[in-house]
Design a protein around this nucleic acid. Structure first.
Lengths: 231, 231
DNA sequence: GTCTATACGGCGATAGAC
DNA sequence: GTCTATCGCCGTATAGAC
């Protein structure tokens, strides 16, 4: 029996497939164990490729990490940007409600078909890791996401014009912390609530975080309004 | 010149000093680089002791990590427990205001003499790391802190009796995420706000987080109240 | 260009001698 | 309590197959 020609053996693999497989494996492992908790060998094993292939495609480990982060960043930013545009268009010519802006920010990450996609779930968990990393949180989040965040904060500023300078940034900080903790999927809320809440119920997380955070921003608006009236 | 007797040479070291030095060094490094980002050699080097001493005192690396976490947990829990007791006593026989409970939770971590202490700063950053770790967040936070957290949630439930079952847990989740992101000290808010806000200004973080989070819990109370009236 | 096999220098945690 | 030795795995470079 003659062996099948190589191209038939591998015809189910499209070009670039193994490159993607490495990114998928790296995404899953980095999101769970952090940068230092993952070896290139573990990534290669999971991707079903040789160790050296990761190095061939991406260079050193750190560059692979960046590549993982970059891969979905533009897609996510585009989703959010569109959601913000839609909220602004819907309210025009007035400024959108605070809640509409908050939901435009949260919805692309917490609802939709992709939340059940393993790759996206891992990616969001990776963002949670990076956001809370003292080493990289400042630099990487700024690099990949801040231009968009600034758009959101500007939109909020139009709805809360009298807010004090730092208020909106600290409020965004609270939003960011709550959101990324949800993505970390630690299972803690499951224990704490004795099963009433589930870490993996992102639909539920979406509603609760959206309401909680909206209330926080509304409070800033009311305080600012009260100051304006008093003066 | 005769050498000084050994006990004079070392008299400035109390017994257990090197043990504490190892814990201090581990605390500082783990909080910044995570569990896997730190080697026992780096810890030993920073503590000025031999590599093997850490193993002698604490056993394997993982047990040292637990020891670091445990060392200050009881002190912190006691502070918070006292702050909660004081808030309850002050409001008695009524239930305390939501804001008083929130501030009792936040104040021991964000204000006071110890916030300028390097050791405590590192410890809080370590808690931030653990809280957001998918591997350990659920198990370790539950183990070290949940009994106290349950006291706070019960206190909040007395002030918000009609809250739906999951509401208070998700609200606490938001509080926890915002607080721990502040402790991670990533410097991101500094970039984002172009210097208006500073990651290391915990006094400012305390005020902003306290107000934001109080508003979130108040919103739950108002919603629950509205439901009660409607029925 | 894509991929594998292999090799290398270095550093990791920890056990056992002292 | 301290020092040393051990053994394994680390990231990466390279040579060459397809």
């Amino acid at each position: 029996m003659r062996p099948l020609p190589r191209d038939v053996n591998r015809s189910h693999r499209r070009k670039g497939d193994r490159r993607e497989a490495i990114l998928d494996a790296a995404e899953a492992l980095f999101s769970r164990h952090g940068y230092d908790g993952v070896t290139l060998r573990a990534i290669a094993r999971r991707a079903g490729v040789d160790v050296a292939l990761a190095n061939y495609h991406f260079g050193p480990k750190r560059d692979l990490f960046d590549a993982v982060l970059m891969r979905r960043a533009e897609i996510l930013n585009a989703w959010r940007s569109e959601a913000l545009d839609a909220a602004i268009a819907q309210a025009a010519p007035a400024a959108p409600e605070i809640e509409a802006i908050i939901r435009a920010y949260l919805r692309p990450m917490l609802t939709g078909d992709h939340v059940s996609d393993e790759g996206w779930k891992n990616y969001f968990a990776l963002i949670a890791y990076v956001n809370n990393s003292p080493e990289w949180g400042g630099q990487l989040m700024t690099q990949f996401f801040d231009p968009l965040i600034e758009r959101f904060i500007e939109a909020l500023r139009l709805s809360i014009p009298e807010a004090e300078p730092g208020d909106l940034y600290w409020a965004y900080h609270c939003l960011s912390g709550a959101l990324t903790l949800a993505f970390a999927q630690t299972g803690r809320i499951d224990h704490l609530s004795k099963g009433v809440c589930r870490s993996d119920d992102l639909e539920s997380a979406y509603e609760h975080i959206a309401r909680f955070v909206t209330a926080g921003f509304e409070e800033i608006r009311q305080k600012a309004e009260a100051r304006r009236v008093a003066s």
